[in-house]
Design a protein around this nucleic acid. Structure first.
Lengths: 225, 225
DNA sequence: CGTCTCCTTGAAAGCGTTCAATTACAGTGG
DNA sequence: CCACTGTAATTGAACGCTTTCAAGGAGACG
């Protein structure tokens, strides 16, 4: 009996461990069976999809405290360490024991996020996207005016659906216009947050209200017991 | 007792009725409380979001048998009849009582569709998008070579994230190259399906396999009971 | 101090949009 | 049945933004 409990404890321990990854190392690959989900303890992780045409699409950056890899069967995207990172790895089998948002809710959130990307890629210029990226990155990094960009320009480009050239040019433009200041390639100081916000525009650009187009509620033509 | 049952039956009837909408009429508006979901009996319905900048984004076209409006609290997008349409309107309260395998599946389909749009908007040219649209519309319409396009060019444009000019030009190009034939503005016959497919490219462009980048599984640095 | 990777910058080309005008079509009434 | 009318679609030309092509430069690390 005791040995069984001990073994159970061991399984529990193994099911929830701290693991570390070197810069650039893959946490898991697109298509892998989803045995674990992860929480970032330190460092930064990116999730990305590889397209058949060779293009890469970064779907998210994850900072300390963020969770990723919550997928039911197999991972729809790869996860890689942007910097050296320490992660808490939790076996998917323990999902039920740990309070997690229910599945349909998670689906809806994923859908919502996907729709935001559609908007971003559809109707925003390079300046819009980069400005929005700088602002949100600044907010997530915590430090107010000093933003660190540990990811490469290529990473940012694949996240915003631009080329690294355009990203670089746009950042340089912002610096030239006095919106930000650059210290080396990875350290940015935001000088004019309001100016950046004006360029970024309303990131959550959906209307809460209606575009009323006079319409009847639709006529009932048959009951249906 | 009997009266209660009768009243219950009445509620049931009201909760699931056939309703009809005229061409262009709104089924519901973006932001409305989601009291019902719908199944298309006949006709075509479009769902669309209106952005703060005035742009419109069509998120889907729905044909007979398709389900839309499956949202938990409020509709994130408007729904409008593209043609005169008859819909089966089901009260959200009956979601659990009515055997509805389509409901959760509708969400997954929407997410899949959204992801395809992200890819489409990100890495595909106008020709790619229009070709893909014609093919999928042909498949959904049922009739093999004769595609009907009851939606306007503007609708198609807002769905593919292009201008109506570009859509029109691209369709004309296809006709000029002999890939399709036009009969009036709404009837298209596909003459060279393989040619169209070649232009559309691989619409489901995610890799099933891995891009292996030699990596260790990540070293355990501490157990976590 | 060399080398590697990543970043920056310039110039030209590509593609879709915008502006502007014309044409086709459906619906309506004579 | 045909002219009239308004909406939708087509087409041309110029513009603008991003990409592509090409070259050079800045750090990081040994």
């Amino acid at each position: 009996m005791i040995s069984v409990v001990a073994r159970d404890d061991e399984v529990r321990r193994a099911a929830r461990a701290l693991v570390q990854f070197g810069k650039g190392q893959a946490v898991y690959h697109q298509g892998d069976a989803a045995h674990h989900w992860f929480e970032v303890v330190s460092g930064i992780v990116r999730t990305c999809r590889f397209m058949a045409d060779g293009h890469r699409q970064l779907t998210g950056f994850f900072y300390a405290g963020d969770v990723f890899g919550v997928d039911s069967t197999s991972y729809p995207e790869s996860a890689e360490a942007v910097t050296d990172a320490v992660l808490r790895r939790v076996s998917s089998a323990w999902l039920s024991e740990i309070p997690m948002p229910d599945a349909p809710r998670a689906l809806e959130k994923a859908l919502e996020s996907a729709r935001r990307s559609i908007f971003l890629f559809g109707h925003r210029t390079a300046a819009n996207r980069v400005a929005a990226f700088l602002i949100t990155t600044a907010e997530r990094s915590g430090i107010q005016a000093g933003v660190k960009l540990p990811m490469t320009r290529g990473d940012i480009a694949d996240h915003l659906n631009l080329t690294l050239h355009t990203v670089s040019r746009t950042i340089s433009d912002f610096a030239r216009k006095g919106l930000i200041a650059l210290f080396g390639r990875q350290n940015v100081r935001i000088l004019d947050l309001e100016g950046l916000r004006a360029i970024a525009g309303d990131a959550e650009c959906e209307l809460g209200g209606h575009y009323v187009m006079e319409s009847e509620p639709g006529a009932d033509i048959a009951g249906q017991p």
